[in-house]
């Protein structure tokens, strides 16, 4: 599972930075397309839910998702690994 912030929904309130026990969410510094400073993720692979949700078949912790007023935080299934196409220019 992979933790993501929906760039379209986030309004930049930074509540997630306050509640995450791992401090994965960090205040962002750059404006996105919508003019919102979306928090940045610091090593999101540390998130309990990312690691263990599939094992336990339920959401673990999830405080960031519950507190996010804009329904912007979610976990998505990671896409299976695809080998990168490398184009070599001579």
């Amino acid at each position: 599972m992979k933790l993501v912030i929906d760039q379209n929904l986030c309004k930049g309130c930074n509540l997630c930075t306050m509640v995450c026990p791992y401090n994965i969410f960090q205040e962002g510094s750059e404006l996105n397309k919508k003019g919102v400073v979306v928090p940045e993720l610091d090593r999101p692979e540390r998130c309990t839910n990312c690691r263990l949700a599939s094992l336990y078949q339920r959401r673990l912790c999830g405080v960031c998702q519950l507190i996010c007023p804009d329904q912007a935080i979610k976990w998505i299934e990671e896409e299976p690994y695809e080998s990168m196409k490398v184009v070599i220019e001579y």
């Binding site: 379209n8 929904l9 309004k11 930049g12 309130c13 930074n14 509540l15 998702q65 519950l66 507190i67 996010c68 007023p69 804009d70 329904q71």
Partner: peptide, 17 residues
Amino acid sequence: MPHIFCTGCGNGTVINC
């Protein structure tokens, strides 16, 4: 979505809960 609530409004949180 996104809803009309201001940035940081707690209503969204209550909807989640």
